[in-house]
Amino acid sequence: MVRNLLRLVWLLLSAWLIVWVLEGLFGIDQRHSVLPFQGDGSSRPALFIGVAWGILPMLGIFSPAGPGRRRPRPDDRIAVARVIAVDATGTTINDVPQYDIFVRVTPDSGEDFIGQLRMLITPDEQSSLVIGAPLPVRFSSMKPDAVALADPLDPAVRQSLLDWRIAKGLIDPRQVRARTSGITSPADILSVRPTGKRLEGQSELALTVLISPEGQTPWEAETTLFAYPQAIGRLQVGSPVWAMYRREDPKTVAITIEKETVA
């Protein structure tokens, strides 16, 4: 909504500047200009309007996904990246500071590489950008170091991230069918124990959960889950989670913190 309003303001400023230029080219007396703020013949309003006209596009008003994002291209790939450094650029726009975020990207195939994101980050968002934090990103196979944030709510992104987790062994092969085509039900954690196994910066937890489908008798199941350190606080005894299982095999369970829709 705000972006659309800013686009409208930019278009109005563009029209104002076009008329002002035409009046100047054709020798029209600008003391009697048809333009607002221009009746005294001064060029000062044009100066301020020109500056505003030039600044608005820098705010990302014509970017479909905002600063730090770009329109997906046909050759885009999706991967998980981990933050390795966050540096302020010294630039502030509308009191929101700009940062360079350096990430280590782990594609589903090929070697890791370092990428850079330049974004405006609010104080609320800064707390989540700690070293090691995961980010879904898009990158071009033609220019892999040019990365952009991927929308985690995009079904294609969710599917790619799921495929990446499966390929990296972060989902037990026995859980894949439940995770990709199972029934999703609410569950609660009864016990949690680290196994000592680590992959891709994540730690494996052995969980016992109580699965409580609506209208059915609850049952217990044991499972495992790889989680980033930032998520472990949400995987404690009593924490609500979501369990995914197949009707014919209710004891083989995959766990997610947030509810997801399977394909």
Rank of each mutant, 00 (worst) to 15 (best):
M1E: 06
R7V: 11
W10D: 02
W10H: 13
S14C: 11
W16G: 08
I18C: 15
V21M: 11
G24D: 03
G24W: 06
L25H: 02
G27I: 07
I28Y: 04
I28R: 03
Q30Y: 03
R31H: 12
R31Y: 04
G39P: 01
S43T: 12
R44K: 12
V51M: 15
A52F: 04
W53N: 07
G54N: 07
G54E: 05
P57H: 08
P57V: 12
G60C: 02
P64S: 14
G66S: 10
G66N: 08
P67C: 05
R69Y: 10
R69A: 15
R71N: 12
R71E: 15
P74G: 11
P74A: 15
D76S: 11
D76L: 06
D76P: 08
I78Q: 00
I78A: 03
V80T: 09
A81D: 00
R82Q: 10
V83G: 05
A88G: 14
T89C: 12
T92W: 15
P97W: 03
P97Y: 08
P107M: 05
D108M: 14
E111M: 05
D112C: 09
I114T: 13
I114E: 15
Q116A: 09
M119A: 13
I121R: 07
D124R: 09
D124T: 01
E125P: 07
Q126A: 15
S128P: 00
L129E: 02
L135P: 07
L135T: 00
P136Y: 09
R138C: 02
V147N: 05
A148G: 07
A150L: 12
D154F: 03
P155T: 05
A156W: 08
V157D: 01
W164G: 10
I166E: 02
A167C: 04
I171H: 02
D172L: 11
P173A: 09
R174V: 10
Q175L: 13
V176F: 01
V176K: 05
R177V: 11
R177E: 13
R179K: 11
T180R: 15
T180C: 09
T184N: 07
A187I: 11
D188M: 14
I189C: 10
I189K: 03
I189S: 06
L190C: 08
S191T: 13
R193T: 11
K197N: 08
R198L: 08
S203L: 12
E204G: 05
A206W: 02
L207G: 03
L210P: 00
I211R: 04
S212F: 02
G215A: 09
G215M: 04
G215E: 06
W219V: 01
E222D: 14
T223Q: 04
T224S: 15
A227E: 04
Y228V: 03
P229R: 13
P229M: 10
I232C: 11
I232K: 12
I232V: 14
P240G: 13
V241G: 03
R246W: 06
R247E: 00
R247F: 04
E248C: 00
D249C: 01
P250L: 06
A254N: 14
T256H: 14
E258D: 14
E258H: 12
T261P: 02
